[in-house]
Design a binder for these strands. Structure first.
Length: 295
DNA sequence: CAAGCACCCTGTATGC
DNA sequence: TGCATACAGGGTGCTT
């Protein structure tokens, strides 16, 4: 599911519902997420007051008054919402954090279980973990820094999806930003002019800002921290619009595979690079995960 | 260094 | 209806 705008929406929704409240106890499901839950964290969390909730890239950080931080990632299908404890517990709910006197609880639901929940005892450990994985946030970037990022033979798509280059951009918003900037996602990054670099940098900000304003995009499972869906999927120009007309020129939106991901573009507004990586996908063409034998 | 693939999972859509 | 296959917003690790 969730890229930066969706995670930001979850955090904004949860902030008034969580900050200042105390986690009373944790209920852990039988099936593990990406990593197993450490039972020692139960004791560390019980009685811990929530000091703040924030976002870094696609990660959610719940800072506790005792100095520890609960770090969550929603993977592809994660949902983090506050419910009344008496509400029916949906299937695939893996963690429940009882709040205050137990009338309400924070629930982590994740169908595919690509998400994760981990407790970091100190800020130093948390920072080390995140700094090893994440580049800067994509807002207010120094144009010169962004130009430096482009000094690579990698495709724009691969670069934008690389969380160590730039934190928070995923498959949807990479495609939408490239469209807005008028550049093909398969372009080698080092073929971008200074002008194009600045246009793309600004396009990323614009797309993410507008998506946050629309509470993110709901394709399948995504809901915000309040349970409300997003609306930005109604404003997609290219993502998921294969075969439909380009909003700008009326040409047909194409799809190809770049960096192992479906990549959507308008061949007129975003001229493909001259050689390689511009062929449209043919039925049956292999992609990651396809043709693998089931375990 | 970069690209490609496999893998972690489940649900849904589609074709036969 | 049933079955097989392909695909999905992400991150990680291995091989080419």
């Amino acid at each position: 599911m969730p890229e930066l705008p969706e995670v930001e929406t979850v955090v904004r929704d949860l902030r008034p519902l969580l900050v200042g409240r105390t986690i009373r106890h944790v209920t852990v499901g039988s099936r593990k997420l990406r990593h197993a839950w450490d039972s020692a964290w139960d004791a560390a969390l019980s009685g811990a007051k929530v000091r703040a909730i924030r976002r870094r890239g696609k990660w959610i950080l719940v800072d506790l008054a005792n100095g520890s931080t609960l770090l969550l990632h929603l993977g592809m299908t994660g949902q983090l919402t506050v419910h009344a404890a008496k509400d029916e517990v949906a299937d695939h709910t893996h963690l429940r954090f009882a709040l205050d006197r137990g009338k309400d609880e924070l629930r982590f639901r994740d169908i595919r279980r690509f998400g994760s929940a981990t407790l970091f005892a100190t800020q130093a450990e948390l920072d080390a973990f995140l700094n090893a994985r994440l580049g800067p946030e994509p807002f207010g970037l120094d144009p010169a820094y962004f130009r430096d990022l482009l000094k690579t033979t990698r495709s724009l798509k691969a670069l934008l999806l690389d969380q160590t280059a730039l934190a928070g951009v995923g498959n949807i918003y990479a495609d939408e930003a490239c469209f807005l900037a008028g550049v093909h996602p398969g372009r080698a990054a080092n073929t971008m002019t200074h002008g194009e670099s600045e246009t793309l940098r600004a396009a990323i900000e614009t797309v993410l800002t507008n998506a946050i304003e629309g509470r993110g995009s709901t394709i399948r499972n995504y809901v915000g921290g309040s349970g409300l869906k997003g609306s930005y999927q109604n404003r997609f120009n290219v993502y998921g619009r294969t075969g439909q007309p380009c909003p700008t020129c009326g040409g047909v939106i194409q799809v190809t595979t770049l960096a192992g991901r479906s990549s959507h573009f308008c061949a007129t507004c975003q001229p493909p690079p001259r050689r390689s990586k511009n062929s449209t996908r043919v039925a049956g063409r292999p992609t990651a995960d396809r043709g693998r034998k089931k375990g």
